[in-house]
Write a protein that binds this DNA or RNA. Structure first.
Lengths: 258, 258
DNA sequence: ATCAGGGCTCACGCCGCGTCAGGGTCAAGC
DNA sequence: GCTTGACCCTGACGCGGCGTGAGCCCTGAT
């Protein structure tokens, strides 16, 4: 039967020795056995329990509650986990809200300090990446996540000049779409779909790979739903976000059909 | 020059008197003046600073850092906020990771334990449940329907103790709103909107997800229109239903604007 | 035999307040 | 002017989850 000392356990689990002492004092995690010298020795089972404890601790549940949960039989455990999930979810969304608030504040402050036109592209700034990531994963699931990772990689490998070039292209696309909207061209018209091909290619470059049709359409949806994109489009022209979203949907549908 | 006592400030900002004392002790928020009797009197400027403090507190800055940030000129402020943004982002993504882990664990466990759903509903009046559902779907359309489904899911995962805890929280919210109404606080006041944040969070838990601003406001409307809710509120205090509805509308508008 | 590198048990410190206790002050109604 | 009750003050302790010593013992390799 394998036994581990405090320090070993601490290193394996990534906690401090003091923490183990503390948990022992509380009765939350007792050693498998205690030597005649007072040394604590932990076994496999204790390690597993510690894992559980740490999981629950991440959820910021008080240690006392954790003890109750872990000592309860299986059924209650499932219930507890579900509740924890809810807490986690609401906390995650709270963080997203906070980030949004922060971004707004930052935007204000930056306007005060310098009215650079970099501001206009803040939607694409690296600091936004994390948020988009969250956003996409929330609604897009796993496949979106990989798209984002790829995108981050691709962005990283771009230099400043590349970025500016990308932005110039983007302005071309956006401008053409705005004109198309003004002219009342239907989203599935040949002209608009031609612009979409350019947009698709542009995304492919910035993502570092070809977007799946569904991802492309999903991105259109994000243009609609995400406040930053929305603001950007609305600022340019009323209804442009919707127009983009529909056009991208149509493009995706065409790809799926053909 | 308008002056406010501790209690008034506390109620307006939704914090405790003790907190104000504490902030004074720390030098984080000093009163505009102190009377010969030692009473603290705050002015408009202090209220604004307090708002800032609370904003930063939401971001879980240590109070000391908040003081630094608020006392620092613009540039440092931006830097500090940006650093904090990163912390938040990484925390948010950590939560998403945890949620995934939890979901996986739950999926496994649920296959093992097969539970008795009906048991979980005890304490509710099932026929009422159905009625509310119909009502909401009737007026709320599809999005309400999905809200309801989510809510049922979330409810399922609650045990009796949870339900009681939820109800206790609800009574706190309702009570505070009643007091606010009695005090004649405007629905868009900071204090009332603070209560609304709690209500919003409460709804988020019972629905199992964050309500969209429109859904939240819509729910306020239902408080007005549905006889059961009306009766509940009117029984507590005359005009409370209207007060709630207005406050919720204001909260939703603020969210849409911000 | 030495000595580094563990182990152990107290016990105080930190943060952001909540929560008494004990006492002064104010406005209103009698 | 006196009571009442709501408010104000200061001071001090408590909590949770450990970090961080201090001071002492144990073990294994040299």
């Amino acid at each position: 039967m394998k036994r581990y000392t405090v320090k070993q356990v601490a290193r394996m689990a990534g906690v401090s020795v003091r923490t183990l002492h503390h948990y022992d004092d509380l009765g939350l995690l007792k050693p498998a056995e205690v030597g005649a010298n007072g040394y604590r020795y932990y076994g496999r089972e204790e390690l597993l329990r510690l894992q559980q404890i740490l999981l629950h601790r991440e959820l910021e549940f008080p240690l006392e509650t954790i003890a109750e949960v872990l000592n309860a039989p299986g059924f209650d455990r499932v219930q507890a986990l579900k509740r924890h999930r809810e807490v986690l979810a609401s906390r995650a969304s709270r963080y997203r809200r906070l980030i949004k608030t922060l971004d707004a504040t930052l935007a204000e402050l930056e306007q005060e300090t310098d009215m650079d036109d970099k501001d206009l592209y803040k939607g694409f700034a690296p600091e936004k990446q994390a948020e988009y990531e969250a956003w996409l994963i929330d609604r897009g699931g796993d496949q979106m996540k990989t798209a984002i990772d790829a995108s981050k990689q691709a962005m990283k490998s771009m230099c400043k000049a590349d970025f500016q070039a990308m932005m110039a292209k983007w302005e071309g696309i956006e401008g053409d779409m705005a004109k198309a909207l003004t002219d009342g061209l239907p989203v599935d018209s040949v002209a608009v779909q031609a612009i979409m091909r350019r947009h698709h290619a542009w995304i492919a470059i910035s993502w570092g790979r070809e977007p799946e049709p569904e991802s492309f359409a999903g991105l259109g949806q994000i243009y609609l739903d995400h406040p930053d994109f929305r603001a950007k489009f609305d600022n340019k022209q009323a209804g442009l976000a919707e127009y983009f979203a529909l056009a991208m949907r149509a493009f995706a549908d065409a790809e799926l059909a053909g």
